[in-house]
Design a protein around this nucleic acid. Structure first.
Length: 581
RNA sequence: GGUCCCGUAGCUCAAUGGAUAGAGCACUCGCCUUCUAAGCGAAUGGUUGCAGGUUCGAGUCCUGCCGGGACCGCCA
């Protein structure tokens, strides 16, 4: 249920009536008519722009339409008042019964309150993390993982059938570097001193891989030429790295549905098939690229390559799918991979990349647009950098990886819930500061704490009420006499709860889970505000000694706040706390 | 040189094309000394980088600048 949709339907019905009565020309497009919470609460509970949107096509002054509309709407029992304001807004105030009914609806729907049918069961594939299988996940991956998982949860809540997918980049030269690095650790396990040459991965995490190789293969590969062990060691080490990455993800509570391997595409003809499809559209050709203007690489020389005509689908230059030695570029298998996602029947694709892959966006979109004939939208979200701070200075040290701070470093210090919440308190395309001291602070300055604290207070109310002998399960609360909920501050809180289903849809439409975090902060703030007023005005306390009926109504409101906070935290993948310690 | 992202209060950031651009912090002024707990309340603070354009209406969309960042053919 979405109260804003209900009232919008009411507005549209009223417009129909006005039209039937000759007050409006027939056939006007009403798609732009909205019913929204006004920015300024003093304007009322909801506002509609109907009169302004329709004024021009109708050839009528906005106020004329607005006044006619106000007259119709005022007849509905849900509308307490309808006032024309400003350039033609119609401000609506809703009857207390609407808000009381909303609290009941929240308690009845429980965790399902706010669920949307927006996705209509369509299938969406969210590809995220896709970190190279050459080492542990680092901070940047962490933000991508949190974002992708929260987005997946959000879309599922909004009615999409979601698949979380990880693309394993195990096809390129970097996994051979991994193999050589692991081989040195294997030699080390045999008591030889490893030669970690420039360009190899120096991290300690490969030591155990060397040990494991020794346990598995003994001294078989010692002093043997690379050709004898490279494939085996590569596969062995890659699997180990993926196991490690899976463990890292598990620390954050992230679980993938599908792992797809880049290497598995090679030799199957699927890359060729995808490119043949593009070739059939005339989008593949042999050609020579112009050097980049203004910054020509020193060793630039014209080369003929196999190119994808991505410029026909919005890219700035055509992109190579083959290197000059005839081998595939990274792009080629990725085209095949996305083609496969299309053929697997997804209705929408979402890729989550690090911001350093921004230059890759247009060509990938071009490929998907071409391969799906424009049928499957691909949204690509770029995740900006995370800057870590500790004790007032940048934090860069890592025990494990040597060169970069790992996901494990962060989660072990901050905990998965704090890590997740904080990383969602910024838009994906804005850089994020993550300050270990601040995120663990127990004060209202810390949004994680503030939201969790609100939920804990709700639970504290329920506990106290139970101790006082009240029955406070959801069914009982939903059946309470909610007309006792009449104070404007209480109804205002209910109004905030009414925004939740709307917020879910806005966030899901934009693929922006951070909106959930901000909403929860606002809701918590409103709840704390009401709570604090109870300090001065005992009539606003949730438990009213000696008045079980009033108490039940007020507790119902508190509990419905808890329901929404829990649901929202669930989307962020954060566990609500019952009690602060 | 090109592409993409960012630019909003002193600071950190919000704002599905809606009205007088909002929070938190800091600063200022009150209040509280407490288990409805790890403070409460109020006030101050703005040319939304600049200039045009579209629109009934622009922080938001378009164009051009300025500033910061990322990326830019055999890395993935």
């Amino acid at each position: 249920m979405n109260l804003f949709d209900d009232i919008r339907a009411l507005v549209l019905t009223a417009l129909d009536e006005i039209e039937a009565a000759g007050g409006l020309p027939a056939g006007l497009d009403r798609g732009a008519v909205t019913v929204e919470p006004p920015r300024d609460a003093a304007h009322g509970d909801m506002a509609t722009n109907a009169a302004m949107v329709l004024a021009k096509p109708a050839g009528l002054p906005p106020r004329t339409i607005a006044e006619a509309l106000a007259g119709r709407l005022a007849a509905d029992p849900r509308i307490a008042s309808a006032e024309v304001a400003g350039p033609g807004f119609l401000n609506l105030r809703l009857a207390p019964g609407v808000w009381q009914g909303l609290v009941r609806a929240v308690l009845t729907a429980g965790a399902g309150y706010g669920r949307s049918a927006l996705g209509a069961g369509r299938r969406v594939n969210v590809e995220f993390v896709s970190a190279n299988p050459t080492g542990p996940m680092h901070v940047g991956h962490t933000r991508g993982a949190v974002f992708g998982d929260a987005l997946a949860r959000l879309l599922a809540f909004a009615g999409w059938d979601v698949t979380r997918e990880y693309y394993i980049n195990d096809g390129g030269a970097q996994v051979e570097v991994l193999a050589r690095s692991a081989y040195e650790r294997y030699r080390e396990a045999h008591g030889l001193s490893p030669e970690i040459a420039e360009g190899l991965y120096p991290g300690d995490y490969l030591i155990e891989v060397g040990e494991a190789l020794k346990a598995e293969y003994g001294d078989r590969f010692l002093n043997r030429p690379e050709s004898e062990w490279l494939d085996i060691v590569r596969e062995f080490a890659t699997e180990r790295m993926m196991a490690m990455i899976r463990d890292d993800l598990a620390l954050l509570g992230v679980e993938m549905d599908v792992y797809s391997s880049e290497r598995a595409l090679y030799g199957t003809g699927r890359i060729e098939a995808a490119l043949d499809t593009l070739r059939g559209m005339g989008l593949i050709y042999e050609g020579v690229l112009e050097p980049p203007k203004g910054k020509t690489p020193e060793d630039w020389e014209p080369r003929e390559q196999t190119l994808f005509r991505s410029t026909l689908h919005g890219d700035d230059v055509d992109r190579p799918v083959k290197k000059s030695d005839g081998s595939w570029t990274y792009f080629a298998p990725d085209i095949a991979y996305h083609y496969e996602k299309i053929t697997r029947g997804f209705d929408a694709l979402i890729d989550i990349f690090g911001a350093d892959h921004g230059g890759y966006v247009k060509r990938m979109k071009a490929a998907v647009a071409a391969l799906s004939q424009g049928r499957v939208p691909l949204d690509i979200k770029l995740i900006q950098l995370v800057k870590l701070w500790k004790n007032g200075e940048p934090f860069k040290m890592s025990k494990r990886a040597g060169t970069f701070v790992t996901l494990r470093d962060v989660v072990e210090q901050a905990g998965p819930d704090v890590t997740r919440f904080v990383m969602l308190t910024r838009k994906n395309d804005a850089a994020l500061d993550f300050d270990f001291d601040k995120v663990l602070e127990q004060s209202k300055d810390n949004p994680v704490f503030y939201v969790q604290y609100a939920n804990a207070r709700v639970n504290s109310v329920l506990r106290r009420a139970a101790e006082a002998g009240l029955v406070v399960d959801d069914a009982t609360l939903a059946a309470a006499d909610l007309t006792r909920l009449s104070h404007p501050a209480e109804l205002a809180l209910a109004r905030k709860l009414a925004e939740w289903p709307r917020l879910v849809e806005i966030a899901a439409r934009a693929n922006e889970p951070h909106r959930v975090a901000f909403y929860l902060y606002e809701l918590a703030s409103d709840f704390h505000g009401l709570w604090n007023r109870g300090n001065d005005d005992p009539a606003l306390r949730f438990v009213q000694e000696g008045h079980p009926d009033t108490s039940r109504a007020k507790i119902a409101l508190a509990r419905s706040v808890g329901v929404v906070i829990s649901a929202g935290l669930g989307i962020l993948g954060v566990k609500p706390v019952e009690e602060m310690r």
